[in-house]
């Protein structure tokens, strides 16, 4: 909704003073901002944890597709009068299962499937979402919110739901983390050691679907990537160690989300712009610093199959 509105409160335009405590207190006077921060926190933690494994497994394209599929889900929910959160989760988890079924045969850890098919599925999902929107004859501001996010209407029920999903998913990642790590890095050896590589792949796709659906509700379907890819990719520049890397990704994700929400509150620009720009800015700065610092030591990157 914010996409087109001049600001959350046109009557009393909030402005930043230099007193940070007063600024934060002023922002938190509004229940909707408190809810937005709670929901944003849950989503940022979930996205960073799941996203770290996604980047490790090189499943960025699948993650993007799962996020996109949330859009027709939410649009269909709006058309049928159901809560959009339900639509997001149903569509994303269903799509995760479909992708797993289509590409699941190869137990070699290659869950990327046929990219062409994924691309086609993505475009078809978007077109279907647009069909639902036009059937619904809904307002276009609503479409913008589904695609690009909005932190205005986050209800307490939504916050509870997002928190529960985040806790369950993070607990699941903590449980399967070690074998998942092994299966992602060296699927052949993992399989030989009796680790259920294919089952872990499907499980991870479901986690990715849940994370994408959760994040969609804050950043919109199109901008999930900002939270799913950028903080983990930035963290991996600092350390490749799993525990430390995941913690760092969570910290970066939280920083970006909180700063984005604050800036969106105090300026007229949309949340999607702030979150993506902050996350991308961090990513570029860290890479640039790394490139300058390591210019002397040329270390060829291992070649990957395209």
């Amino acid at each position: 909704m914010l996409g087109a509105l001049p600001g959350p409160l046109a009557l009393a335009t909030p402005h930043l003073s230099w007193n940070v405590v007063a600024d934060v207190r002023e922002m938190f006077r509004y229940p909707f901002m408190v809810n937005a921060f709670r929901a944003g926190t849950a989503v940022a933690v979930l996205s960073a944890v799941v996203g770290w494994f996604m980047v490790l497994r090189r499943q960025a394209f699948v993650g993007h597709t799962l996020a996109i599929v949330g859009f027709p889900g939410a649009a269909a929910a709006a058309w049928l009068g159901a809560p959009p959160a339900l639509g997001y989760f149903a569509a994303c988890l269903l799509c995760a299962l479909v992708i797993a079924a289509l590409s699941g045969r190869g137990a070699g850890g290659d869950d990327r499937g046929e990219p062409a098919v994924i691309g086609l599925a993505q475009a078809a999902a978007l077109a279907t979402g647009y069909l639902f929107i036009s059937l619904y004859h809904g307002n276009l501001e609503g479409t913008n919110a589904l695609l690009f996010g909005s932190f205005l209407g986050v209800t307490t029920g939504q916050v509870v739901a997002l928190t529960v999903v985040a806790v369950v998913c993070v607990a699941a990642v903590a449980t399967i983390g070690r074998p998942l790590m092994f299966a992602s890095v060296d699927p052949g050896t993992a399989l030989a050691r009796g680790i259920p590589v294919a089952a872990l792949g499907v499980g991870f796709l479901l986690l990715l679907g849940a994370a994408a659906a959760g994040a969609s509700q804050i950043t919109g379907s199109l901008l999930v990537f900002a939270l799913l890819v950028l903080p983990p990719a930035t963290a991996r520049r600092f350390t490749l160690r799993p525990g430390l890397g995941i913690v760092l990704a969570v910290v970066l994700g939280l920083a970006v989300t909180w700063a984005g929400l604050t800036l969106a509150y105090y300026t007229t620009y949309p949340i999607g712009f702030w979150v993506t720009s902050l996350a991308f800015g961090l990513y570029v700065v860290v890479h640039a610093v790394h490139a300058v610092a390591h210019r002397g030591r040329h270390r060829p990157q291992p070649e990957r199959a395209p």
């Binding site: 914010l2 996409g3 087109a4 960025a60 394209f61 993650g63 993007h64 913008n144 690009f148 199109l222 901008l223 990537f225 900002a226 890819v229 950028l230 990719a233 007229t268 620009y269 949309p270 999607g272 712009f273 702030w274 979150v275 993506t276 720009s277 996350a279 991308f280 990513y283």
Partner: peptide
Amino acid sequence: GSVFAWLLGLGVLFLS
């Protein structure tokens, strides 16, 4: 993925 996440964010800015 990183580049286009930001591209979309910029697109939203221009839209607003």
